[in-house]
């Protein structure tokens, strides 16, 4: 078992940061598993918008949503951030038009991203993934994470975000 700092030093988790605009400060944090980080770094830049035909590229969507998260800007429950069913699992999802990021709240305002995917992959007729699998993978990752103390924080949107 290890402290959270040790897991960061061992790169089991990586803090994701972003240079916020002048006048904004890091009010919330996001950490990612290496696989999820690789997806952000290498896969998203190659993506194009899907059936929603957004005028934002997926990378722009990610950056803007993370800017909102990190800067402490309001997040709209449902459209931007939501807890997955069943809520007892305490798995949360960050959403953009084309992207889905699944993880859990380690502490209020601290999100750990485990899995991620392209929104159209979860929708018929191009469905190749499903939300239940992602939720299970998040729970499995959390259960097996060798972290001392409480691994996650329970609470509703207003308390955690």
């Amino acid at each position: 078992m290890a402290t959270f700092d040790k897991l960061l030093k061992a790169n089991v988790l990586v803090r994701v940061t972003f240079r916020l605009p002048r006048g904004q400060f890091h009010e919330r944090k996001i950490y990612a598993y290496p696989g999820c980080l690789e997806w952000m770094r290498n896969e998203i830049p190659k993506m194009v918008t899907g059936r929603v035909a957004s005028d934002f590229t997926p990378k722009e969507q990610l950056i803007e949503r993370l800017r909102q998260w990190m800067s402490g800007d309001p997040m709209a429950y449902g459209r931007m951030f939501r807890d997955m069913e069943p809520k007892i699992d305490e798995v949360w999802e960050i959403k953009t038009a084309d992207l889905r990021i699944f993880g859990w709240m380690y502490r209020p305002r601290e999100f750990i991203a485990v899995r991620a995917g392209y929104a159209d992959d979860y929708k018929e007729p191009t469905k190749i993934k499903n939300y239940a699998d992602e939720r299970r993978e998040v729970v499995k990752a959390r259960d097996t994470l060798p972290l001392d103390g409480d691994k996650y924080t329970e609470g509703n949107f207003d308390e955690l975000v």
């Binding site: 030093k9 790169n11 990586v14 972003f18 990612a32 980080l37 722009e60 990610l62 800017r67």
Partner: peptide, 18 residues
């Protein structure tokens, strides 16, 4: 690597944020 900074080109950042 304890942290990773995502990067985006300034032009795209300014436009998408606006």
């Amino acid at each position: 690597m304890n942290s990773f900074e995502l990067e985006i080109d300034e032009k795209s950042y300014v436009a998408s944020m606006f």
